[in-house]
Design a protein around this nucleic acid. Sequence first.
DNA 1: CATGAATGAGGATTCATTCAT
DNA 2: GATGAATGAATCCTCATTCAT
Lengths: 203, 203, 203, 203
Amino acid sequence: MTITEKKHGDQERALSRRKQVLDAAAICFARSGFHGASMAEISKAAGMSAGHIYNYFDGKDAIIGAFVERNVERVSAIMRDLEQRDDPLQTMVDDAPQHVRENLDPALWGLQLEIFSEASRNPAIAAVLRQADAAARGEFRAILKKARLQHALAADDATVDGRLETIFAMYQGMSLRALHSPELDVAAVVASFQVALAALLFK
Amino acid sequence: MTITEKKHGDQERALSRRKQVLDAAAICFARSGFHGASMAEISKAAGMSAGHIYNYFDGKDAIIGAFVERNVERVSAIMRDLEQRDDPLQTMVDDAPQHVRENLDPALWGLQLEIFSEASRNPAIAAVLRQADAAARGEFRAILKKARLQHALAADDATVDGRLETIFAMYQGMSLRALHSPELDVAAVVASFQVALAALLFK
Amino acid sequence: MTITEKKHGDQERALSRRKQVLDAAAICFARSGFHGASMAEISKAAGMSAGHIYNYFDGKDAIIGAFVERNVERVSAIMRDLEQRDDPLQTMVDDAPQHVRENLDPALWGLQLEIFSEASRNPAIAAVLRQADAAARGEFRAILKKARLQHALAADDATVDGRLETIFAMYQGMSLRALHSPELDVAAVVASFQVALAALLFK
Amino acid sequence: MTITEKKHGDQERALSRRKQVLDAAAICFARSGFHGASMAEISKAAGMSAGHIYNYFDGKDAIIGAFVERNVERVSAIMRDLEQRDDPLQTMVDDAPQHVRENLDPALWGLQLEIFSEASRNPAIAAVLRQADAAARGEFRAILKKARLQHALAADDATVDGRLETIFAMYQGMSLRALHSPELDVAAVVASFQVALAALLFK
DNA sequence: CATGAATGAGGATTCATTCAT
DNA sequence: GATGAATGAATCCTCATTCAT
């Protein structure tokens, strides 16, 4: 075994250890929240001693930060998918049912809320969030602009960004609805989402 | 001074003390979050010893609960206003600018997020939230139904509730947008909100 | 009303107030113990503000002390009764049933235990207890000595004091038995007590 | 070092730590009582941080409980010794001096009182005490019954239990005598104890 | 690399006591 | 006299973090 291989192995091992911790953290954070989850709880879930975690993370805040980073790129996947469609606008309307349902998944919005509220107080987390959101907006903006031009619709920055923020608000707000109104009628919401989306995208 | 006057004064004093604590808590909660804010911090902000707070609240949870209750009735005011309008649907579209701006107020959404994330783990808080939301939905549902019938629009429960949940999602989601995208173009968002609202309300 | 009468009234009032507090303390101490009973609890039971109690007692310790003093003279009554009997020794044997039952009264031994354990740590309380006990021993010693001489039994100090301590131990120990063995057969115990007493008194 | 050895060492260490805490607790409880002794005091006496104690005990109540359990089995040892004697009844009379002296040991009765008074208000402690006492009674009952039959004495349940409770009361009461009458004449008490015991056992 | 024993600062809460009214 | 609002010290307990092994 050469030194290079050793190092490579070390790095790989380290990455795998970090992943191990972050996976455990996901479970604990979902169960107890960022503040409610103790390092002891995380270390047990990670199958690793509490002390050892400090070889891979500077502290609990660093775990939260890394965890947030990993959980923030979900929207980009939707964008990439959208980009490759012939008619992204119609696709958005058509795929609304699936997207609404995704945002109603309790496993998801619990952690989303945790992240949001942490971000509202922790500038480092807020920065991560904003950066990811800016990237997602950038992707969405390009898709939207191009598609609206193809449909001969107004595509100035203000209009496009207004549409975009509103759509984002709708979907992110949907997670909050799950919290407020647990028995809501998903099908009815989907129908209304499609009405709103059709207007926002095609007007 | 009669006993009645004395007692009356006592009750007033007690209420004023509770308010004093809740006002201080608002500041501390906004700064540090529900869990980050210590009783010492709150007591200092309230100009009162930590121990004394326990004469007015059973504990920190009770403060959080009372605080949430006080912050949860905002929507009802809008509903009551809406109810007295000739054309509530058009009013909603016309008043969108003001409502959007309200939900973007940083002082507001920081605490809203805190409340939401607390509710996602604390059943007592979730119950307060859901009750208030159910009340707001009830009021909104009645307004919407009546107004849509007057406009000869579909007003079955599923349709009305779908519209209602979507509109709530938009507005509550707007608070999240302020967090993610602090420099967003409010005017552009308002314009898009009006497009979406017009569709949701009049279709 | 003269000044003397005023003062007299004041003193009487003060004594009545002290009694009021001590009566309340008796209830609270029985319910919660010396340490478990809070001044707030006592003041509520006394129908008096917490602060006002400090006009009559230097502090909680003083209440405990006064309470103990008041509860410590129970044995003397038995002695005085015994003193007037023709045959005190036989009376003790004959009255054993009643005395055993008294010491098994839960309302009694609960507070007795509280007093004992407080005394084991608080010298002031211990002193009160010892003084009262010494007085009781003195009375009992005299009775025992005289009676044994009449019965032509050994009545030297060592013998008399040994008998006396043993009898006291039996009765005070009986309170502890109620705690350890709540369903004990009182009649059987009484019979055995009489056997032991007969031996201790008449041998 | 094998894992087994490691684990074994860990368990041993943990047991030794628990013992360390209980020994420290014994000192602090004797000095300040269960409630008077603070965790800080105990931790200092144990040479261990306050927080660390919670790795070995669930809380202060658990320490008290474990402490009581450890202090409750003293009587059983006497019973086991008694069981193996040819003439347990005579042995009891003969060994009275030693047993009396044990119950007069100040280090002992202080804590005994603490335990008793705690038990009078803490059901968990009372349960421990009663269970231990029931066991001791059971052992003593068997010994007494058998021995009395051998001596051709009445050995029905009521008689035996009455004797037994009375003897227990005498010895446990002796601890209280040490508190009330610190300068009592031990030899004289022993003599009287033997008179009483002889009567209780052989009549 | 890996452990988990150990620390100690910090948090919520209680309560005897004081004092302005 | 009488109140009870107000204090603040003290208590139990938790947990992120360190470090000897």
